[in-house]
Computed example of a mutant assay.
Amino acid sequence: ICDTAHDSVDYYGKRLKHTSDLKTNACVAPVQPTPTFIRLALKKVHPEITARYYGCGLVVPECLEGCRILDLGSGSGRDCYMLSQLVGEKGHVTGIDMTDVQLELARTHVDYHMKEFGYKKPNVNFVQGYIEALTDAGLEKDSFDIVISNCVVNLSPDKRRVLAEAYKVLKAGGELYFSDIYCNGRITEEIKNHQVLWGECLAGALWWKDLLQLAEEVGFSPPRLVTANVVTVNNKELQDTLGDFKFVSATYRLFKVPKGNTRNSKVIYNGGITGAEDSFHFDCQYTFKANDVVEVVGDVANILTHSRFAEEFTFQPLGGPTGPCGVKPMVSVDPFELALQLGVQGPGAVTGGCCSTQSAGCCK
């Protein structure tokens, strides 16, 4: 595994002491509304854990109660401890990281958090290992309902292996829900070898179209874009090195569901997800209001039918392979276009994702 990428161990474990030490906004969350229940969960996280957190925003998918969650690149453990409250005592959260300093910090506060949450036994554990080798680190195949990642996939030199390993450890119907940095083209070798730009989550950024291809090769459903925000570089030297390359932080959701189901469907959201009782923002193309009938493309119908969301919807098949006129076929949304659109509408237009927040809910 490439030395430049794993030199980020030194960058995150030693050179960065606080979030304020970062040189771009790629891994810093701008101020956006955070659901009350997530805010309350974050308040219970030990302040030392929060101070050493370098992720880009909150990565909190919906429907979490009772779920088994894996956090790739868990760092100080902030997200793990927040999620451990949302999955409940019957759920479980595992964090995997390759950084000794961060793992030591995360493990130090396990007992503190379990006492704070009122749990009889820990529902959080931390594993040392690489995100390209999850099973080698002792994580079992088909064992997680959700895999999350917060601005760390770009730190890997072999992103296909990361996706493949995530697919391997997910249960059938499971989801990879992750925020990361994407580029408007393929990064040059010169930029890839820039250590600071690696640590700032830019040098390893995928061209967003390559993500679509890699996901298909691994076996995931077509990626669904949740939200996107423009990344700014407030450092002239770094900007000169980057040249014309532009970046966005974006959140995608990928599912491990059966292939071949392309029938459109009518769905009714039942309104039962914690934090999204009235409206469930699935992605940038679909927001489901409780009790409203919505026609969805086959890929989305397939995801909703075979994932943890199945019990949250009532389904009404249309009968045709392509659905009625008025339901557009699935198209890949350009995250740069979405970021511009959301920038015009304002930061409150869509909640969720990298450099933002998303609501949570239930695994039954």
Rank of each mutant, 00 (worst) to 15 (best):
D3L: 15
T4K: 15
T4Q: 15
T4E: 15
A5W: 15
A5K: 15
K14W: 11
H18F: 10
D21F: 14
L22M: 01
K23V: 15
K23C: 13
C27K: 01
Q32N: 13
P33A: 04
P33S: 01
T34Y: 10
I38D: 10
I38V: 02
A41C: 02
K43H: 10
K44S: 01
A51Y: 13
A51S: 12
Y53K: 01
G55E: 12
C56I: 14
C56D: 13
C56M: 14
G57F: 06
V60S: 07
E62L: 14
C63R: 15
G66C: 09
R68H: 14
I69H: 07
L70Y: 11
G73I: 11
S74C: 13
G75P: 05
C80N: 09
M82S: 00
Q85N: 12
G88L: 07
G88P: 04
E89Y: 10
H92A: 00
T94P: 04
T99V: 11
V101G: 05
H109W: 10
D111H: 13
H113P: 00
M114E: 06
K120A: 14
V124N: 06
F126G: 08
Q128F: 08
Y130Q: 01
A133S: 06
L134T: 07
T135F: 07
D136M: 02
A137D: 09
E140T: 09
F144P: 08
D145Y: 12
D145M: 11
I148W: 06
N150W: 07
C151S: 13
V152E: 08
L155G: 02
P157Q: 13
A164W: 05
E165C: 05
A166W: 06
Y167Q: 05
V169Y: 07
A172S: 13
E175R: 13
C183F: 03
C183K: 03
N184H: 00
I191L: 09
H194I: 09
Q195C: 14
V196F: 14
W198Y: 14
G199T: 02
C201N: 12
L206Q: 06
K209S: 02
L212N: 08
L212C: 03
Q213S: 08
Q213G: 00
S221L: 09
S221W: 00
P222H: 05
P223N: 05
V226W: 03
T227A: 11
N234D: 10
K236M: 14
E237N: 12
L238Y: 15
L238H: 15
Q239L: 03
D240T: 05
G243F: 00
G243K: 04
G243P: 01
G243V: 09
A250H: 07
T251V: 07
G260F: 03
S265N: 00
I268R: 05
Y269D: 08
T274F: 11
G275W: 04
E277H: 01
D278Q: 15
D278V: 13
F280W: 08
H281D: 08
H281N: 12
H281F: 12
D292P: 00
D292E: 01
E295P: 10
V296D: 08
V296W: 07
I303D: 02
T314R: 07
P317L: 10
P321S: 09
P321A: 11
C325V: 00
C325Q: 13
V327D: 06
P329S: 02
S332Y: 15
V333Y: 10
D334E: 03
A339L: 04
L340S: 03
Q341Y: 12
V344S: 11
G353I: 05
C355T: 05
A360R: 03
A360G: 11
G361R: 15
K364R: 15
